[in-house]
Amino acid sequence: MLNIRDLRIDPVCLGQKKLLVDIVPVYEYKDNKRTDAVVAYLYIVALPDLRLEKLGVKIDGKQLMDKPDGFAEVEFDGLEVSAYESQGHTQITAKAAGVSLVNTGKKPC
């Protein structure tokens, strides 16, 4: 039987622009309790082509850039998007290997 976790979503479906609006630490959990150890960061992007819906993209390791004042257009290296089911609802998850600012000739807002 096919499992929804085995399906991958083409990142092109997210649209051309990804606007970084927030960066949130992801903490390690041991025995179902959160520790103080940060293991990754979630880069929250708004997607203009999808009615500004937001998506968190997890990148393992240290924080790669500062949180923007407002928003900044970014692109992800090795972006993978997939779906999973939780409590009867389909959810979207994303991970990447890296993130960088898109060079638009302007400073991030």
Rank of each mutant, 00 (worst) to 15 (best):
L19S: 02
G88I: 10
V38R: 08
K107F: 04
C109E: 13
G105M: 03
S86G: 08
C13A: 14
H89L: 14
R5A: 10
R8D: 11
D60K: 12
Q16R: 15
E53F: 13
K107N: 09
G98Q: 01
I59M: 03
R8H: 05
L64P: 01
L7D: 07
E80L: 09
E85C: 11
V24R: 13
L50C: 11
N103V: 14
K106A: 14
K95D: 08
D6T: 06
L20G: 04
A46R: 13
G88Q: 06
S86V: 10
F76R: 01
K106H: 11
V99T: 05
F76H: 04
P11W: 08
G105H: 01
G70Q: 07
G15C: 05
Y43P: 06
I9S: 00
D77L: 06
Y27R: 09
Y84W: 10
S86N: 15
I92G: 07
R51D: 12
Q16N: 12
C13H: 07
A94W: 04
L20A: 03
S82R: 15
L79M: 07
K106D: 14
A83H: 06
V24N: 09
R5L: 11
N32Q: 12
V21R: 04
L101P: 02
R34F: 04
E28Y: 07
R5H: 08
V99K: 00
P11Q: 05
E28M: 11
A46P: 04
M65L: 15
F76A: 05
Y41Q: 05
A37Q: 14
Q63Y: 02
L101T: 00
K67L: 04
M1T: 10
L2M: 11
V74C: 00
A97T: 12
A83W: 02
A96W: 01
A83R: 10
Y41K: 02
V21T: 07
A37V: 15
L50T: 05
C109Q: 12
S82A: 13
L7H: 05
Q91N: 15
L7Y: 07
A72S: 11
I92D: 03
K107D: 10
V45D: 00
Q87F: 12
E85G: 11
L47H: 02
P108W: 03
V81L: 07
A40D: 07
K18H: 14
V39T: 15
H89Y: 14
D77R: 13
E80T: 13
G88V: 09
R5M: 09
D66L: 08
S82N: 13
V26C: 08
A72C: 05
L55K: 08
G78E: 09
L64H: 06
L20S: 04
V99M: 05
D77E: 15
A40W: 01
P48K: 06
I44F: 02
V24I: 11
V57K: 05
L14I: 03
T35E: 06
G61K: 05
L50F: 00
N103T: 14
V45E: 06
D60V: 12
K107T: 12
I59K: 05
E80D: 12
V12F: 09
R34K: 15
P48A: 06
K95S: 13
A83T: 15
